[in-house]
Nucleic acid binder design. Sequence first.
RNA 1: GGCGGGUUGGCGGAGAGGUUACGCAGCGGAUUGCAAAUCCGUGAAGACCGGUUCGAUUCCGGUACCCGCCUCCA
Length: 467
Amino acid sequence: MTAIRLTNTMTHRKEVFAPLDPANVRMYLCGPTVYDRAHLGNARPVVVFDVLYRLLRHVYGPGHVTYVRNFTDVDDKIIAKAAATGRPIGDITEETIGWYHADMDALGALRPTHEPRATDYIPQMVAMIEELIARGHAYAAEGHVLFAVDSWREHYGALSGRSVDDMIAGARVEVAPYKRNPMDFVLWKPSADDQPGWDSPWGKGRPGWHIECSAMSDALLGSSFDIHAGGIDLQFPHHENEIAQSMCVHPEASFAQVWMHNEMLQVEGKKMSKSLGNFFTVRDLLDKGVPGEVIRFVLLGTHYSKPMDWTEKKREEAEATLRKWWALTASLDDVGPLAPPKKLIDALANDLNTAGAIAVLHELAGSVKALELAAGLEFLGLEETPSLGAVGSFGLGVDTAVLEAANALARRWMALREAKDFSAADSLKVRAAEIGVELTVLREGKVQSGNAAVLGRPSLAQLEALK
RNA sequence: GGCGGGUUGGCGGAGAGGUUACGCAGCGGAUUGCAAAUCCGUGAAGACCGGUUCGAUUCCGGUACCCGCCUCCA
């Protein structure tokens, strides 16, 4: 069996992965708060850990991996959006979840085994909070329930490498009179009448942010499971707080064995932020005609443990590379599921070295091993999605009639070339390029043929006009 | 202030204590109506200072610089 090695953020070491139960390998990824479209930074962990999911399924069997990714559908940002738009919260979360699925599907991410919504697990959260109070790790105060970090002082901070004392020294925490220690964090908070709330022993209220992941991972994966993943920004305080909650409720258990965190995404060398104006969503890119596979390729081109920079140049290179590979594999007959190349699996098994895996694909393409290339592309989720169009097309939603018209154009162009009417041929080529159709020569031995690549969004009328 | 990450050839970006990463671009050539694509060949690296070692870009320490998190935008 392939030995998978993963860097465990908890120990800062690359360790050989040994699941608690090989018949049921369990991983949890912190999912989105559903109040708006997912931006590119949100997509990185989804794509990176989708590759981990694929690798685990390959090694342990597709039926032996349980992957949970939650939806946070109760949160102050959602409440704020509802207030600003006058729309019901349920409408907003439902719509956003639909967007999320569509966008992540476009990036080739497989759907997790379970996608629990926080609001479906309120009773479990309340039970967990009650248990924390009973065990002396939490206390109610002014309608709130807070986790008492002093009750867990010697352990709190292990993941992020800080001690309670360190953090108080640098204190940038919300100071509230009802907190015993400024580092104490909210498990439950009161809701006003116009805010979503549930009855609880502490009055009508709603959960704090961290408790949902503890409750849902416990319900779906158990009190000890294998991998917990997310962006490095979640390491503190979110994951630290999850650990505190879960370990205090189940001191006999070990919670997550391996913690994995991806580094942050930047755009043209700078942090993506609304104030810098370089903030964009996955949907923005898709709408601009960047195929999901291209976005995925760029995201996988940098190892997850390093900051990754999204640049226009990378987008172009990724697009050119994929176009080349798809052309190489397009002529293959459908030969059914293919075993991924061993070298590719070896690269991924080494701490999810996706950049190394892509290098393996480059080597396969260079030595014209089309079958293995196709298998590798499929494994990484980079195969050309059949619905996108026929051979030679590149781009989303090019419909058949447009494609047929473009191909007719290519045939006409070749006819002009063969008749040595080069000025007419060149003129046609230039005009085709203007509406986003690239005409090129394909050679197979001594036989030449014209090829049309639809790069833009030409209308049928525009294509007809060139005839 | 606390915590963490990074610094590899023109650019992007990996592994590995000793043997070519890989890609893009460049350069030389083939092919070509012109292009594009393709094919063959090719130069180029490891921030700085020490240490360990027969040998370090790879391990350890220090210096410099860059970046992120702790603060509604992951």
